[in-house]
Design a protein around this nucleic acid. Structure first.
Lengths: 347, 347
DNA sequence: CTGAAAGCGCTTACAG
DNA sequence: CTGAAAGCGCTTACAG
């Protein structure tokens, strides 16, 4: 085996067992310099030199030390991603798209979870995630109090929250999606549309509720008192039992698919037929196809949201003038799309 | 404002705009040394010195440069996480648990996605993820050809695949879970149990199929020809139409909940009642509660799997003798649990 | 096309 | 309790 670089006296415990550029250099009979050139695919290296270096690299299993590279280059090739509730499928899909897009652009993704979604939690997550990354993608601001949030300075940040006016934003037109849902339900012949909303402190829920209200107002229809769940199937079930016990409920817009599944269960148990007795529309279109009957739902293009987030962030990174603490207002709105299924057949 | 450290002539573009320990030091009238001590919570600093340094840190918004820290310390505080298909809820839940546990142990998580799950793709992902991390958690080996995989040397790796005998492993007892499901279905009075399995090349599906077969053999029942889907609701729907058209299908074990939702839809459309005509059990217990009727399913404790993965990895990291290329066989098996719901009422 | 020098920001011994 | 020196592994000018 080979003699690797000796460990210095003072600094440096050394990355025990990992070969360095120096090791490769001495074995290939070149300078560390040239090793660096080969590792980075520079074109000013003689082909035979390159081959010799590559051969030694392969033999030693050399990969450049990322920390040293980042330190020297003065900029990171990692993006920080702060998320709240990954296993909610929508967020998982955004994360997938963020990772895929980052990868295409040669960036890594460092994921930090803010379990509760509170402002404190998010601030902590941003502080951690901030370490060693070039910029930050922040999901999961849904229920955070926006004026309590401390976004890191000297670092580009993009978010999925349209309230954060001083930061670049990517998000679905929530209100527009809700309007599509309500108009479609009115089109099936219902006189009005009941609402099962999300938590009162959720900005997404508020925006969907706004869209619902506006659509009913525009059509001149009565506006029922909305019910509130917490996004879970169980809370949808509660709301559904409530609605099933009322007279004259012919159409319900449920603010996400998971609650809609609970509403459907309550309707089934009450012996109400979907869509003959009650028509239903959900939101997100993540599990709507799996339900019985298949649920009409407002589709979010999570992939597009994830792609736009990374694109927007890298744009800011590549524009030195746009860096620093200068607030930039930039918003990309992704259009919603109604996917019609059996839960809303025309009567 | 403050004069920050000047940019050197040769090396060093500098982390423009970011204050360094030196900046803090000169403003607080101490050495960079002492700043480092305060940043790391060392106890050999005079309280008043500490306070002065902390005050300047806060004023400047100082955070230590992670790359420099990692380079100097000779070890990383990041864990690499390689995943395949995040938005499948089970994997998302493991990722959440991995992040939470890593965080408790003061590690970051660097996430790399291998979109197709092929060996090539996973090898690429591991090579990328390997950069700058202390160890690797690899999910998503489900369909990879195990002998094509090139695990990084000189770095601890843990996986969720029981075939990889030379690496520490955490996983559910898949076959045991399937046996629970089959025994329960036979207990409802069915003479045999049909199977809707996953893809033929999926190791998880193979193990669940083994458990199903073994349980039927043990009970001395006939073993029907299994059907194969691709884990999606649509493929479950196809299989379900097939089964609905057959005579004598009284009980079906479906290898995941998503396919089970498709099977249920096919049964509903064929006018078959669940559980009166056909009893159903799914696997994973991720969306089973949302279905109609609520689906009996084999629950995986994803949280425990994620926790064990990180614990096992950090154990290896903290045991110098266990590092390096020495193969260690270590396996943690998480027990399955059957969650009984309305889709399998006793007849 | 190739190399010697300098330095990114931090922390580890060592000295006081 | 505090500081000056050294060096982690790499890459950026510069010189040849």
């Amino acid at each position: 085996m080979t003699q690797l670089s000796s460990t210095g006296r003072r600094g440096g415990v050394g990355w025990i067992g990992r070969p360095t550029a120096k090791d490769v250099a001495s074995l290939a009979g070149v300078s560390a310099q040239t090793v660096s050139r080969v590792a980075n695919g520079a074109d000013n290296v003689l082909p035979e030199t390159r081959d010799r270096v590559l051969e030694v690299m392969a033999r030693l299993g050399y990969t450049p030390n990322a920390a040293a590279r980042v330190l020297r280059a003065g900029r990171s090739t990692s993006l920080g991603l702060v998320a709240h509730h990954i296993s909610r499928t929508g967020e998982a899909k955004i994360i997938e798209a963020v990772c895929a897009t980052a990868r295409e652009r040669s960036y890594d993704v460092s994921l930090t979870v803010a379990p509760t979604g509170s402002s404190d939690d998010l601030n902590r997550a941003m502080l951690r995630s901030r370490q060693g990354v070039a910029g930050l993608v922040v999901l999961g601001l849904e229920t955070a109090e926006i004026d309590q949030l401390r976004f890191p300075a000297n670092m580009p940040v993009v978010v999925t929250d349209s309230r954060t006016l001083s930061l670049p934003t990517v998000g679905l037109d929530q209100a527009g999606g809700a309007q599509l849902a309500v108009e479609h339900l009115l089109g099936t012949g219902a006189h009005t549309v009941h609402l099962v909303a999300g938590p009162e402190n959720s900005i997404q829920s508020q925006q969907r509720q706004q869209g619902w209200r506006r659509a009913l107002q525009t059509a001149g229809r009565p506006i029922p008192e909305p019910l509130h769940g917490d996004w879970t199937p169980a809370s949808g079930y509660q709301a559904g039992r409530h609605l099933a016990a009322q007279d004259g409920v012919r159409a319900v817009f449920v603010a996400n698919d998971e609650m809609a599944s609970g509403v459907m269960r309550a309707m089934h148990e009450a012996g109400l037929r979907i869509p003959e007795d009650v028509a239903l529309v959900g939101f997100d279109d993540v599990s709507a196809e799996c339900l019985w009957p298949p649920l009409t739902s407002v589709r979010q293009d999570f992939r597009a949201i994830g792609e736009h987030l990374v694109t927007l962030l890298l744009e800011r990174l590549d524009t030195p003038s746009a860096q620093g603490a200068i607030p930039v207002s930039q918003a990309i709105v992704v259009p919603p799309r109604l996917i019609v299924r059996a839960s809303t057949a025309r009567r």
